Computed example of a mutant assay.
Amino acid sequence: MLREANSSTPTFEVVPVTRANMPMVASWPRTGWENDFGWPGTSNGSNVNVIQTGDKVDIVIWDSQENSLITSATEKAAPLSGVEVGANGAVFVPYVGQVYIRGMSPDEARGKIQSELVQIAPSAQVQLSLTQGRANSVELVGGVDAPGAFPMPSRNYKVLGLIADGGGILPTLRNPRVRLIRGGTTYETSADSLLANGERNALLMPGDTVIIQQDNHSFTALGAAGSEDLVYFPKDNLSAMEAVTLMGGLQDSRADPKGVLVLREYPVRALRSDGSAPSMQQVVFTFDLTSTDGLFAAKQFRINPSDTVYATESPIPAASSVLSLVGTTFGITRQAQNLDN
């Protein structure tokens, strides 16, 4: 390993991880997480609905005036049922024409229609009820007991309220993740983080889609450990020490606790030469679990999706064997990632 690190033309970067350099390593770009948009914070909206195109309103016009243009002598109420709000934001009211009500609350729309009727029916009174259309609803897809489209009960409808209306997150999902699709942007967080932090209870907007799925992020476990396999993340923040535990621990008869490796590949755009980021795409982080410093560093180091955690065997015959082992492992990792995708 030292031979590769000191080579004039190294093929990968070797970083022994200690408590001293953990702040630097922790500041390097994270890898393996597809979403870079974070998650919107919470806010408060209006506790009333706002009428949108595609909504339907039921209008009842009451007029007791004799010789009314709207009502008859025997029926003092004229119902207009299921009137759809058009693309121009208006509804048609007889003897009045187009009345623009998009963007209004139901009470504001009722007042607007009533004021438009004053010239032909000064004593008329209006009742209005709203049935929301798809443009005034949000969708909850998968991961709950009752997914579907949900009309927004108000403009103060939030993610946790939507999930509750859908019956709650299924308990069988592994580390469930919540995605919020808004226009062309996808936000993502874990369900644990959403439930633990009220600041993440994002305010929904009409047309939002919320998707709940189990987490399929994984790392590859190889070498002298309890298992060699893809290991799925049970939570978002997973330390190197926890990863070793999930691998089944180090095998006493084979593993070298001074040679636990984490192999990671960075995109070219993440590379830097000033230490603020890796200088090469392929990086091998090394841990010495026989020292207190190494143990604490392993507890602080975060495993990223698509990492490979390799428990080397003891004793290591030569540096050339390690170089061969690491090169082969990077190839195995790519194959595993391709199969997983």
Rank of each mutant, 00 (worst) to 15 (best):
L130C: 13
Y187C: 05
G331D: 13
G166L: 00
P122R: 15
A255Q: 01
S227E: 07
N67P: 14
G226F: 11
G161T: 10
M152N: 01
A319I: 00
F12R: 02
K235S: 07
G97Y: 07
A20L: 05
A277V: 07
Q65V: 14
L204A: 03
N216R: 09
D307C: 02
D340Y: 14
T286G: 09
D165L: 13
Y187P: 04
W62N: 11
L271G: 06
D55F: 15
V284A: 10
Y310V: 08
G259V: 00
L204S: 01
R269T: 12
Q119L: 10
K299N: 10
A77W: 14
V260N: 02
E265Q: 14
S314L: 09
F287H: 04
V91E: 09
Q337N: 11
V268R: 10
A146P: 01
I316M: 10
L162N: 05
F150L: 03
F287I: 02
P94G: 04
F233V: 05
Y95P: 00
A191H: 13
M205I: 01
V309I: 14
W62I: 08
V210S: 02
T329R: 14
E13T: 08
R302N: 08
L170D: 03
E108C: 01
S253M: 04
S279I: 00
E108V: 02
P305E: 02
N175D: 15
D215K: 02
G223L: 11
N201R: 11
L173F: 12
G184Y: 01
G167C: 08
Q282Y: 13
A135T: 08
S190A: 12
A243I: 03
T186R: 04
R269I: 11
E313M: 10
N156H: 10
A90T: 15
L222F: 00
R3N: 09
G167R: 12
K299S: 06
E34D: 12
L250M: 11
G248M: 07
F301N: 07
I59Y: 07
Q52P: 07
Y187S: 05
N341C: 04
A311N: 11
Y100V: 09
S68D: 09
R30L: 14
P171W: 11
E116P: 02
S320F: 12
A109P: 05
R200G: 09
R102A: 15
D274G: 01
A255M: 06
G103L: 06
I181Q: 01
G142A: 07
G249I: 00
V50P: 03
Q213F: 00
S43H: 13
A135S: 11
V93Q: 05
A221F: 05
A225V: 13
T9N: 13
L160F: 04
I120W: 11
D63T: 04
K158P: 03
L295H: 09
G161W: 01
A255C: 06
R134W: 06
M241E: 04
R110E: 08
R200V: 10
D256V: 05
